[in-house]
Design a protein around this nucleic acid. Sequence first.
DNA 1: TTTACTGCAAAGGGTTTGCATGAGG
DNA 2: CCTCATGCAAACCCTTTGCAGTAAA
Lengths: 143, 143
Amino acid sequence: MTRQELIQEMRRLGIRVTAQRLAVAEVMLSSYDHPAAPAVYERVQAHLPHITMSTVYNTIQVLAKGGFIQPLSFPDGTRYDANPSPHANLVCVQCRAIVDAMDDEGWVGRLREQVTGKGGFQVMSQRVDFYGVCPKCAAKGVS
Amino acid sequence: MTRQELIQEMRRLGIRVTAQRLAVAEVMLSSYDHPAAPAVYERVQAHLPHITMSTVYNTIQVLAKGGFIQPLSFPDGTRYDANPSPHANLVCVQCRAIVDAMDDEGWVGRLREQVTGKGGFQVMSQRVDFYGVCPKCAAKGVS
DNA sequence: TTTACTGCAAAGGGTTTGCATGAGG
DNA sequence: CCTCATGCAAACCCTTTGCAGTAAA
């Protein structure tokens, strides 16, 4: 998504475009490690040294409401996922890394189909996390 | 699970058995609405009026570590799931109700099989949530 | 008897809010 | 111009922690 497309999409959703929001959105959309707010703050500071955490949190809420990102609550804070397609996350319980799981065959979407329509529950979105130990941590800690 | 079986299982895991822990565990294991800590506290108070939130939180940690319950973090607090089998949760974004989704055909387990073994990630547990509007709320708010 | 759990109160930390200033449409 | 976003600081709320007393094993 180019900067122009991003601006157009924001305007289409009635989101007022500011330098801060653009910066936060671009960091979010180009981050694949599911950053928390403080990490987003740090990265945005490289472009906008004067931005504050309030604005980052405010913008995050706006972007979430607009469907650009999905919040993932964890005990130690909220991480954000900018991948709009149905997928699973692999969450390392040791280093807290989060990566998207390969799901070429669309199993998450299929699971959603199974759930939808049963019992009259209207599914709007989903969160699929698998918790465990990533290859790096498994190599380090020889458990 | 009877009270005696619960006690034996706790001892087997090296968990010291106290009246407070038994009460919290029994409330947890007999609650199917995925209660948050304050709700657990209220229910336990019916049996142990003198218990405190500290003890409830302490016990919750112990039970989670022992694998009796799974914490589910949400923006407005943590809910707890006492269903040990792989399943999906249906989370109503309006009334915050959480119910287990029927998964007779084991789709969640199958999805886990797909993820496990790909890329060397060691899966230990999972969380599968579907967010939407429950039948009750759909009937009320005619959206 | 030894270990560690309970209760109480206070602290912790990510996130939200109130308000004056400043910028977008 | 009018509305709404930003920045700053303080407040929020769920959860954790420190400590003295007490109960489990």
